[in-house]
Design a protein around this nucleic acid. Structure first.
Lengths: 161, 161
DNA sequence: TATTGTTATACTCTATAACTATA
DNA sequence: TATAGTTATAGAGTATAACAATA
């Protein structure tokens, strides 16, 4: 049951520490969450001037790279449900950034494409995001960045599916 | 303006790649997001049996470590607004996990404490979360984990405030 | 039958801004 | 005045489940 430090009957201590997250696994996890949160806030600042959220930018960038994928493929890639993607695409289509085209070979499926405006928006925001990322990431040497990438990749696989 | 690859006038190509995110900064960022997302989903599974969300668990764990902090201190630590924390604590107080106690020295402020049930819940969920984390993190050698932690810490600082 | 997408619904997290009570 | 917390409001993102159209 691992009752945490200080199961005490009185709570009058100055700073009763219940849980001491001194193990590296926990500290690294907490750091991962914290770092991503900070970086997201930084990246959001650049996007909100364009009326874009981070998930929307992710979709924009994904469609820029994989034009013509289906909604389900997009959902799988972004690790969200198809219902979620459907709503996201609704909003982004309404904004004129994305276009659904029915797949002629399988008329159940939609193929997703960026519109001209969507491409322009991506062309405008991606370099900004990239610049901000570079500003932050340059805290690491190239070799360290490479290691970081690999560590994350391995954790990703270990987190499995 | 850095128009991405394939500004083409026709869109008939098989897979027109607009953006090639081949720079390590971008790939690492994408990997960071993806890995965290996967790990969160894994950790959520363990929590939802207890009716806990990840943000709630974060609060539980933070209060376990820093009992008696104020709502604003908690907000700053979790990088969210005080209004947000207020609502979170409302819900968690209603669930009987957290207790507000008015600070006798500054009656504007609330000091936050885990209730007995909150402590019990933390004592139950933290080891589970820890076990899951260890399962994933053991994909890295101890030295690598240490490096990962430091890299993230440096990025965190670089992302500044 | 199985699959793609849509719709309906609901909930959590999040933010902002105006408000209160205390300092 | 300034600060801690509350309230009201709003919105995004997310999930689930039932449904339609197509395969």
């Amino acid at each position: 049951m691992t009752t945490p430090t200080g199961s005490g009957r009185r709570e009058r201590r100055r700073l009763p520490i219940l849980l001491k997250p001194d193990e590296l696994e926990i500290r690294t996890w907490a750091q991962l969450v914290h770092t991503l949160s900070r970086m997201e806030r930084r990246l959001e600042q650049a996007l909100e001037g364009h009326g874009l959220s981070i998930p929307q930018f992710d979709i924009l960038a994904t469609l820029g790279f994989y034009q013509g994928i289906t909604q389900q493929e997009l959902a799988a890639r972004l690790l969200v449900t198809k219902g979620n993607i459907c709503g996201m695409i609704d909003r982004m289509e309404a904004s004129g950034w994305v276009e659904r085209r029915s797949d002629p070979f399988d008329r159940r499926a939609n193929r997703l494409f960026l519109t001209r405006r969507g491409k322009a928006l991506l062309a405008q925001t991606a370099p900004e995001q990239h610049a901000r990322l570079r500003e932050i990431m340059c805290a690491l040497e190239p070799g360290e960045l490479q290691s970081l990438y690999q560590y994350l990749d391995r954790l990703d696989e270990a987190a499995g599916d």
